[in-house]
Every structure is written in C-alpha cells, then in structure tokens.
C-alpha cells in the first residue's frame, strides 16, 4: 500500500520537531529515513503509525486520509526499537496477538503463526518466553508479529540498534529479503548511514525536522544536495571556495577546472576514495603536496589523514592488497591529487 505524507508539521512547545515534511513511498518500496538523533525521524514514524497527531498536514495510506485515525485502524505493522515484545506471553501468543485482535478464527491463527515463525526461521520457538531468546531472535519475533496480519505498511524503528555488528549485518539482509518476498511497503528509520545504504530502495536524509534529500542510495551518496547530506552520509572532504572563470581555487591544490557551471560560492565534495596518493597522483589534473599525519589500517583499505602544504587537512582512503606495501608512513611527504570528474559541486546559498 502506498504511503503519502504531506506537509507534516509537529511542534512540542516552542520546539519544532517536524517543519513541513513531504514524503511519498511507493507500493512495495523500501524507504529509509536517515538522520541524526533529534532530526525528527522518530516523530515522523510515530505520526505515520498514529501515535502522534500532527499540528498540520496529512497522512494518506493507500489513498485514504488516516491523519486522525487511531493506530489500530491503520493496517500498519511496526517493529519498535526495543522490540516491545509482551514479556508475559509466549512467542506464539505474541505473534498471535494482532490476529486475535482482528477476530481471526483459532485454527487459522495457529496456521498463520506457524507460517510467520517459519518465515523468520523460528519454528519450534513458539512456546518460549521472549526473555528466553537472544536479542536477534527477539528481533525476529517482533518482525513476525509485525507482518503476520499482512499489513499494508511496515514500520521499522531502528530495529538493529541493540545488536552486535555481525548479527546486525545478517539480519539486515534477512529483513531485506523478507520485505522483497512479501512486497511490503516499508518505512525504515535509522541513524546508521551504512545500514541505510545497504537496505534501501531510496533514502530520505533528515535534519532538524526537514527532509534534505530523497533518492536512491548511490545517487544520494554520489550527488548530495546539501552540505549536511554530504557530511552525514559517508566520509567526506568538504572544501569551500568560489567558482570564477570556470575554476575554483582551494588552498594546497592547483586550481580545479569546473567548466560550464555558474559562478558563485560553492562547496566541493571529494570522497576519500577519490583521492590519489604518491605516484598515482603524479598524473592527476589537480595536485598538491601534503604530509601524512595519521594512518589507520582498516583491513581492506587504509585511511590516511594528510595535511596539505598551505591547505586543508584531507582524508584519503586507499585499497590494500597483501602483496603491496602500505602507501605511506606517518610524517612522510607525498603528492596528493584528484580528477575534477570526481568532484561533486554543492552550491552555497
């Protein structure tokens, strides 16, 4: 079922949690709302779920205005941050709960609970209590409970936050597969940009109660619309300069040619992986010299902080192969370069 959020405003006292949010989620789409804590993403989710009534704006589910409808009338399945499993009920009773509330017949309930538990690979766990399960298992019970009644919309509120990294990665893919298989329209909330990039069809980046940009992960990553998005999503070098005569001068580098763009103040985004170092930099169109301040070994790659001569500090990431020596030592001077094609230009207002 498609979701449409139109002009939502929500104030708490004189704090504006949501300052006019518009968002459309297509049928079967997995859309992630990504933002730091306090950006209003949880308030937005609660508004969609029906736990918050917005001061202005409307929420449409499947074309129907549900702005004032109570949560139970919305046909929405939700997984809470801490799962919110009923601790006094067995796993099976937890999953049966939404079906019981809908007056489904007993045999039918048993069948569908079994099916839902199989879907999350927890068959045989029905008689356990939530506290007898691991965090990852509890998370899957919460997921089964949220989808067992075939809701039109699935809401996930940072469901992986409490899990360790390895488990989290497994579950992310599992949730994604389940979502695709059931073709469930899904609104997912996280502050973890990596998670957002892995899971989403589209990402909406939120900051201070507003949506800054909506788009597919690759696009939002490569072409952020604002400085905030560029900074929040992934690692970045953000360089302020003024575009004049088809080029931008930034300290420490030769001028960056950017033909065909209107002049004015701009911010240049350079991802760490776009920087070339040492010999690789010799042939780069834009070059400079810098001293390595710090190298961090990351397994597949190495991250370097380089202080440019008469310029900014740059973050570079270079892939590592076992046969190659590390690209540089701390304190070493080397050439740093990049190609203008790898630069993304963000206009500054």
């Amino acid at each position: 079922m498609e979701l449409s959020v139109q002009g939502i405003v929500r104030r708490f006292g004189n704090v504006t949690a949501l300052g006019g949010v518009d968002l459309d989620v297509a049928e079967g789409e997995f859309l992630t709302i990504l933002g730091p804590s306090g950006s209003g993403k949880t308030t937005l989710l609660k508004t969609v779920a029906g736990f918050e009534i917005p001061d202005e704006g409307a929420v449409f589910l499947g074309g129907e205005d549900v702005t004032l409808a109570p949560p139970r009338k919305r046909d929405v399945g939700m997984v809470f941050q801490n799962y919110a499993l009923f601790p006094h009920m067995t796993v099976a009773r937890n999953v049966a709960f939404p079906l019981e509330m809908r007056g489904v017949r007993r045999e039918e309930i048993r069948r569908r609970v079994e099916e839902a538990l199989r879907l999350v690979e927890l068959q045989g766990f029905g008689e356990r209590l939530p506290r007898q399960l691991s965090g990852g298992q509890q998370q899957r019970v919460a997921l089964a409970r949220a989808v067992v009644f075939g809701p039109g919309l699935l809401l996930l509120d940072e469901p992986f936050g409490a899990l360790d990294r390895k488990l989290r990665e497994g579950l992310q893919l599992e949730v994604r597969r389940l979502q695709r298989r059931l073709r469930l329209t899904t609104l997912f909330i996280t502050h973890d940009q990596e998670e957002a990039l892995i899971m989403s069809d589209r990402i909406a980046v939120m900051d201070r109660g507003r949506i800054e940009q909506v788009g597919p992960p690759a696009e939002v990553y490569a072409r952020p619309a604002t400085r905030f998005v560029a900074d929040f999503l992934g690692e970045s070098n953000l360089l302020d300069g003024v575009l004049a005569d088809g080029a931008v001068r930034i300290g420490g580098f030769t001028p960056v040619p950017l033909p065909g763009l209107p002049p004015g103040p701009v911010t240049l985004l350079l991802r760490p992986e776009a920087l070339r170092l040492a010999e690789a930099a010799e042939a780069a169109p834009c070059r400079g010299r810098g001293r390595v301040i710090e190298t961090v070994f990351l397994g597949l790659s190495v991250k370097l902080r380089v202080q440019m001569e008469d310029g900014p500090e740059m973050l570079a990431r270079v892939p590592l192969r076992p046969s190659l020596p590390p690209p540089a030592q701390d304190g070493e001077w080397l050439a740093v370069g990049f190609a203008p094609e790898d630069v993304h230009v963000i206009p500054r207002g």
Partner: peptide
C-alpha cells in the same frame, strides 16, 4: 514500558 501498550494498539487493540 509504555511502548508495550503502544505496540498492542499498533497491532490492532
């Protein structure tokens, strides 16, 4: 946890 009654209402209660 107040989320529990919220969850129950969200699930149709």
């Amino acid at each position: 946890d107040p989320d529990l009654s919220r969850a129950a209402e969200g699930l149709g209660a």
